[in-house]
Structure formats: structure tokens, C-alpha cells
Design a protein around this nucleic acid. Structure first.
Lengths: 208, 208
DNA sequence: CGTTAGTGAGTGAACGCTCACTTACTTTCA
DNA sequence: TGAAAGTAAGTGAGCGTTCACTCACTAACG
């Protein structure tokens, strides 16, 4: 899951790898085409004809790769969801302290938003459609973050409180600005402000 | 726009008044029925036949009150949007200091979420569909908050920085937990945690 | 020659919306 | 005062359109 980084020309698109099929394949073109359309018009605002056209294939080709339009949309959401989980887990394991963990997770979200804005925006705007249900065993970044906050509370690295609320508040500090940036409310990349967000996130975790 | 409050039995539902038509009317039943369905299934997941059935009227009745299903959905979103704007403005004007203003706004959002969860959830989940475009003159709570943050920066009550980012981070501290609560990630009302959110929001504003 | 990927016309269902009509109430005026 | 005319709300069958999805077919390939 971690970027190989041995290939010299695989630098800035590292986060996208593993989320979509190999470039150029019909499946990858369907995924990218659908993603672009879903992001702009929402899943329900996009027809299978439009997806096929965007991918440069016939409508029937969709059904050689995905059982339904809904499954395609879910697959795209799950892909970014699981990728984020893996990235967050990697950074949390590499963290030297609780505060360092918060900084790393915030930077991870900022980088993900900057690296593939379309993918991130789709994830953000469709959280309520696909992300609401959380059941045990599902790789959910928020649950992971909450459990690490619980550990920090036990260790005394974080003041006591409801870890789910702390996790939500900390994430909100990053995700709401990400949404506002997508709406054109401010300029610059998310990473430009990562340190601010990290400080604010940390404060939010400790105050809630 | 502000509640008249002369009527003694208009206490805890005050926030809802003015958002929908008078109770019992066909228009009010259409708005409530549509709102409940839109919240649960999304605007595109609800048919005009279903709305009519929920309101206990015929399908044609919808079009005596609203030009289209889309207009009905927009109307519902705008109603809560403008109501929130009015409430936020009222609290900001009553605030004795910048810190007090943050506390009041956070409490306002918490109360709105608690008083009419359906309305608030619809607002939250459809922000990306209706709330993305912000143009001058539109009553937008976020823009109002950002402008007050700018004032505070000018007065020295708040450290310098981009007010749009500060506003987004502060709102995120409240809205993300609100979304997580709706997803069933924690118990209790939003107001139960309003003081925590206020402290965290204030910290987020000052750290970004 | 069997398998797999891709085609695209076709299908039934569901959709948003319309419209001729009924009903209930208000206004007009001899 | 009371019949006639006008108005607005509500009805529900039905319209044209679009939709997701299917399937008989072809092309490419080992």
C-alpha cells in the first residue's frame, strides 16, 4: 500500500495509485470519468450514458466491470476511504508522540486534498451518502483516530473526554476548511496551512 | 425575522417558526413531508409521488405551491440558511466581546441542531448541493462570521490570519461533531457539549 | 476455437410535470 | 337576499422523456 518510491517518475501522484485501475485501461477510464462527473453533478445527477461517453466506451462496457452504477459509485468512495485509512494508520504508527500524530494526520489529509482534489471532493461531498454507516471491522479513519485518542487519554497525553467527539472536532478543523476551499472561499493549497490546522486540531482535541 | 415572543406558548420551537408555512396547511405538510424524505433519501432519491403521499395530498398539489421539486428543495434549504443567518447575526450583535460572540454562535448552532434535527441534518447534508455558490448579498452565516473575525483582527481581539480559514475551522469544530452525532457516533445533545465546542472553536480561531 | 471485452439498439419502469376537471369559497349585482 | 360569476386549491389520469440495465452480437486473442 505504501508508495514504492523506487520509480523516479512516481512522485506527486503517489496517493492516487491503488485507488483506480491501471491508467489507460477501460476500467480506469470508467472510474476517472465517473469520478469527475460524480464530483461535479453528484451520483444521481449523472447518467450511465454520460459515464460511458466520458470514458469513451459504450454504455454496456460499464456493466462488464461493475454490477451497477451504484456499485461503481460505492467502489470509488470505498477506494479513497480505505486509502485514507491506510495513510492515517501509517502516519500514526510512525508518530513519536500524540502531538506528532495529530500533526502527521492533519498533513496527510491536507496532502490528500491537494494531490487529488477531485477524489477528495467526491469523498467529502458523498460522505453522507456512503459514509454514514460505520460498522465494526470497516476500515474507518475516524474510528482509528478516535481509538488513538483514547490511548492518549489513558496515557495522560490528552485530557479526558469522549474520544469520538474529540476526533470529530479535530477532523472538522481540517475538513470544513477543505470544503470552503473547494467552494472558492480562500486561495492556496491545504498544505500551505497544514501547520495552522495541526495546531488548531490539537487545541480542539484538548479542549473537547 | 426575529421571533415575536409575545405569544406565551412559542417557547422551544421558536427556531422552526418562519421556516415552514403555518402548521396544518397543505403547504406546511408538503414542506415537512418533503423535508423528512429529503433528509433520509436525498432530494434525488425522492419522487414527487412520495412527497404527495407523505403530505396526504395529490401530486398536482405540489405544483400549486412550488414551481418544481427542485424549487421546493431549494426553498427548504434557503429557509434554514436564512434563519441561521438571522440567529447568528442576532447573537453577534448581542455579544459583549469577541470570545462571547464565539460562545453565542456555537450555542446557536448547537441549539438549532437540537431543536430541529431533521431541518439541521437536511441543511448539513445538502450544503454541497445548494450552499456552495456564495455571491455578494446572499445572507450567508459563514461570510458574516468571517467578517466579524476580520473586525476582531483589526481590534486586536484575535491574532491575524485569513478570516475565511478561521471561520471555516471554527465552524468545523461544531459541524463535524454534529454530523458524527447524526451518524450515531456519540450520544447526548449538541448543547450538552456546547461549552467544549465553544472553547475548541475559540482555540481554532486563534490558532489558524 | 473458446473466452473475454466491448457494442449499441432495445426494454420496461419510473420519473417530473401537465391539464382538464371538481370543489369550496368569495364577490358581484339586480 | 340569492342566483350567477369568478377565483384559487386540489385532484389524478396521463403525457413525453429519461433512466438503468440487458442481450444478441462482433472483434480480438492465445
Amino acid at each position: 500500500m505504501v508508495a514504492k518510491a523506487s520509480n523516479s517518475d512516481a512522485q506527486d501522484t503517489a496517493d492516487v495509485r491503488g485507488v483506480t485501475a491501471p491508467d489507460g485501461s477501460v476500467k480506469a477510464r470508467l472510474e476517472r470519468g465517473a469520478l469527475n462527473l460524480f464530483r461535479e453533478h453528484g451520483v444521481d445527477g449523472v447518467s450511465t450514458r454520460a459515464i460511458a461517453e466520458a470514458a469513451g466506451v459504450s454504455e454496456g462496457a460499464i456493466y462488464k466491470h461493475f454490477k451497477s452504477k451504484e456499485v461503481l459509485a460505492q467502489h470509488l468512495f470505498e477506494a479513497i476511504h480505505e486509502k485514507l485509512y491506510a495513510l492515517v494508520e501509517e502516519q500514526l504508527n510512525a508518530a513519536e508522540s500524540f502531538d506528532d500524530g495529530v500533526l502527521r494526520v492533519v498533513k496527510t489529509y491536507c496532502k490528500a486534498a491537494d494531490d487529488d482534489p477531485t477524489l477528495f471532493e467526491y469523498h467529502l461531498t458523498h460522505m453522507f451518502r456512503f459514509g454514514v454507516r460505520h460498522y465494526p471491522g470497516r476500515p474507518d479513519p475516524t474510528t482509528l483516530i478516535a481509538s488513538r485518542i483514547q490511548d492518549a487519554i489513558d496515557n495522560g497525553a490528552c485530557p479526558p473526554g469522549n474520544p469520538e467527539i474529540k476526533a470529530a472536532a479535530a477532523l472538522g478543523v481540517v475538513l470544513q476548511p477543505a470544503a470552503h476551499r473547494m467552494a472558492g472561499r480562500f486561495e492556496g493549497t491545504m498544505t500551505d496551512h497544514a501547520d495552522q490546522f495541526a495546531r488548531a486540531s490539537l487545541a480542539a482535541v484538548k479542549e473537547t
